[in-house]
C-alpha cells in the first residue's frame, strides 16, 4: 500500500484575494493567491483548498478569475468552498479550473443538492464540508452546525456523514468547531469516528498548532488527509517540513525532491 496521506494548506480568500496573514519570506504581495499557491506547490502541498469566506453573489466573478489564474500556474488539485449553492456555481468553478468544490450549508439546507451535483459532475469533485460541535463534555456525540457554529441543525454528525456519502459525496471535509482556531490539535475521537465510519476519504480540519497534531490526525484519527491554515500561513512550518516530520514517524507522504 503506497497511497500517500495528503497535506492540504487552506487559504481564506475574499474578493479573489488571500486575507489571512501570509508570512513567506520575500513574498511581494501577501494577498496574491497565485504567488501563495505557487509557494505551497513548490513546498510539496498535495492539494490546495480555497475558502471563500465572504462569498456573495456580487463577488463570484472574482473567485472565478482567481481560480483561473491559479490553475494556469499550479498543477495540483484545487478545491474551492464557500458560497456553493447552485449547480451553476459548481459548473463555473470547475470550468475555471477547480477540481473539487466544497458544499457546506447548502447541503444542510437542501440535502438533495449534493445528489444533483454528484449526478451532474461526478462524486470525485463533490466534497461535503461538515462542521461538527461536541454535544457534551464526553466528546462522543457531535452535532452538525453551520455558519461557524452559530446555527445548530440538530443533525447527528455520524448519520449526516453517512447520508452525504449515500447522496454522492466523494470526500468529507470534517471540521471540529470546538477545536477550530485553538491550536490544541484535531478532535481525535470525532475524526476517528467519521474516518472509520464512512467509505470515502476524510480530511481532518480544525485545531492544528504543531506537526505532532498532523501526525495524530493521521495515526490516531485515521484521517486520509489533513488540512491546516495558520501553521503554514504564518511561516511556522513549511509543508515540506511537515512531510519530513511525518515521514520520519513512518507516515507515507509524497516527498518532493
Amino acid at each position: 500500500m503506497s497511497l500517500a496521506r495528503r497535506i492540504i494548506p487552506c487559504l481564506d480568500v475574499t474578493g479573489g484575494r488571500v486575507v489571512k496573514g501570509v508570512n513567506f519570506v520575500g513574498l511581494k504581495d501577501a494577498g496574491d493567491p497565485v504567488e501563495i499557491a505557487r509557494r505551497y506547490d513548490i513546498q510539496g502541498a498535495d492539494e490546495i483548498t480555497f475558502l471563500d469566506i465572504t462569498a456573495t453573489s456580487d463577488n463570484r466573478g472574482l473567485i472565478l478569475e482567481m481560480i483561473e489564474a491559479v490553475a494556469s500556474q499550479v498543477f495540483i488539485p484545487l478545491t474551492v468552498g464557500g458560497g456553493v449553492r447552485h449547480i451553476e456555481n459548481i459548473r463555473d468553478l470547475l470550468n475555471a479550473g477547480a477540481d473539487k468544490v466544497g458544499i457546506n450549508s447548502a447541503a444542510v439546507a437542501h440535502p438533495e443538492f449534493v445528489q444533483a451535483a454528484a449526478d451532474r459532475f461526478g462524486s470525485q469533485c463533490i466534497v461535503v464540508a461538515i462542521d461538527a460541535l461536541a454535544v457534551d463534555a464526553t466528546n462522543s456525540r457531535w452535532e452538525v452546525v453551520t455558519h461557524g457554529g452559530r446555527n445548530r441543525t440538530g443533525l447527528d454528525v455520524m448519520e449526516w456523514a453517512d447520508r452525504m456519502v449515500r447522496m454522492g459525496a466523494g470526500e468529507i471535509l470534517l471540521t471540529s468547531i470546538d477545536r477550530d482556531g485553538t491550536k490544541a490539535g484535531f478532535n481525535l475521537p470525532l475524526t476517528r469516528a467519521v474516518a472509520d465510519g464512512v467509505s470515502v476519504p476524510v480530511i481532518a480540519s480544525g485545531g492544528v498548532g504543531t506537526l505532532d497534531h498532523l501526525l495524530d490526525g493521521i495515526v490516531k484519527g485515521h484521517a486520509d488527509a489533513v488540512l491546516a491554515a495558520s501553521i503554514f500561513h504564518y511561516g511556522e512550518y513549511t509543508v515540506g517540513q511537515a512531510k519530513s516530520y511525518l515521514a520520519s514517524r513512518g507516515v507515507i507522504v509524497r516527498e518532493v525532491a
Partner: peptide, 19 residues
C-alpha cells in the same frame, strides 16, 4: 468496498490522492 491495507486500515473509495 471494505478493502484493507496491510496494517488493517480501511481503504477508501474513491482511490484518491498521490500513489
Amino acid at each position: 468496498d471494505g478493502m484493507m491495507d496491510p496494517d488493517g486500515g480501511r481503504l477508501k473509495i474513491p482511490h484518491m490522492g498521490w500513489n
